[in-house]
Every structure is written in C-alpha cells, then in structure tokens.
Amino acid sequence: MSVRSLPPDELVDAARSGNRRAIGRLLTLVERGGAVADAITDLTHPLIGGAHVVGITGAPGAGKSTLTGQLTRILPEMGLTPAVLAVDPSSPLSGGAILGDRVRMDGVAGEEVFIRSVATRGHAGGLALSVPGAVRVFDAVGFDPVIIETVGVGQVEVDVVGAADTAVVVVNPGWGDAVQANKAGLLEVADVFVINKADRPGANDTRRDLELMLDLSHMSGQEDESGYRPPIIMTTATDGSGVSNVWDAVQAHRAHLDATGKLAERRAARLRYEVANRVDAALGARITAALDGYDLDPDRSPAAHAENVVGLITLS
C-alpha cells in the first residue's frame, strides 16, 4: 500500500519515523483543509516541540530564496534540522502557479533540508490557514527551525511572517528600497533586517535609511519598550558571505524573546491569529450557507436583512 493513501494517524507515525513521502503527503492534506486537515492538526498539535519559527520576507528579487538556501546549508553544521515553507503567489486568473523557489535555492540549499513550495491559492484566508498547519506538521515531525519564506507584497504574506517567532526582512541596496519596504508594512514586523547584495553600490545608503527609520520609530514610541532594536545585517547571499551573521542575529532575537518572556506572548498571539482565522473561515462558510437559503426581499433594508441572517447563523 502506497504511503500516499495511509490514514492520517499512520501518516503521522510514518512521517515521525522519517518517511519524507509521508511528510510531503501530510503537508498536502493540511493545505487542502477540511475534516482531514483538522484531524491532522488534532494529531500533530500535541506533538509539537516548540521549533523556532523564522519568517523571511522582502520584495521580489531581493534574494530571499538564496539567503534561505544558504541558511539551510549552515544550520545542519550546528546540529539543527531546518525545514522551509516557500510561498509564491498563485495566478489570480487560473488559480494555477509556477513555484520557482527551489530553482533559486538550487546549488545553495543543504542536501538534507526539507523544502516545500506553497501557492497562495487566491483567497486571502487560504494561506493564513494552511501555513500554521504546515508549520505544525514540520514541528511535530521534529524539524527545527521552520523557515517561512514569502514575498512581502500582500497583507496575508506579511502577516504570516509577522506571526513568526522571528521576522527577517530582506532589502537591497538602491535608492528607495527601504522606503518601499516601509510602505509595504515590512518595517513594522521586522526583528532582523538584512541588506542583501551588499556588494552593490548604495548598501551603506540603504543602511543609513533603515537606521533613520528605526530612530524615527523610537522617537514616536513604536519601538519595543524592552529596548530591542532590530539589527541590520549585510549579506551577499550568492556567495554566502554574512549569512552566519544573519543566523547569529536570529539567535540573539530568540535570546531576547526568552529573556523577556516575549516568546510565550508571541506564540499566544500566533495561536490567537490562527484561531481567529479558523473561526473567520468557519463563519464565512456558515454565512454563505445561510444566505443561500435566505429570501432577500429587495424592498427591505439591508440592515434588517443582516440582523436576520446573524440570527439564523447564531441559531444554527
């Protein structure tokens, strides 16, 4: 019998004994959602061991995948077992996708690392539901750290990284890159900044821009009250230089979280975010179902209709 057709509990057992096919299958089932995904979530949740969840985001072409690939090369040397969730957008027209992060990690990623490509699959809530489930599978199977890589252009993509234990924001040298990152809301979530392609002209200008923005957020009181200030790391991911400094900075952030008790806070917030999204999705389905059987009299006020429908959902 193929691994692929095992029931969820046997799949989880196979995955935990190191069967990569089973891990791959669990990720597929979690991503599809529904009752089977919920069953897997129920099975894996008690097994999680607190893997450090690292989000990496930045503009397209910033070098996130190459940086991620380089991290997965050095982490096993430290005795760590990284897994990567690489998120790329789906085509809004067809729902299909071309997921190319493995190409960009090719030749730099460690051989034993587990990489999974994920498409955003259109509907905004999809990613918010599937990513925590996939992270939980990785954690339950024993991977640590779990790296989530997204393009920092959509709100959900940014939120998913922001909900990680440590969020790394990658920018490039060049006038305005830091400004763009700021506009995209990336600076607010950053725990570590990386200026990748630091061998290019303008790297120091970009560092100065970032420092300035951090100063401003300090003055406006947005900075962490514990005094944590995101470090700025210079890298050239294509040849690996500076990459170990990135991991050192991630570790330092983790130490800060541990020392201040903020890790538990973050994880509670993440759980709340996940539960909120699940409730949102469940209610959304019930709203649709309720509306499907509801007679929308055009002569009545929308406010009155809404009140009725809420009543139907609450009763059901």
């Binding site: 190459t66 071309i98 190319g100 190409v103 960009r104 090719d106 030749g107 730099v108 040849d239």
Partner: peptide, 10 residues
C-alpha cells in the same frame, strides 16, 4: 570563480 545558477524563472 564559483558557479552560476539561473535565478529567474518562467
């Protein structure tokens, strides 16, 4: 010199 891997896809 190192090696080259194409970064851009599609």
């Amino acid at each position: 010199f190192g090696t080259y891997v194409e970064q851009a896809i599609v």
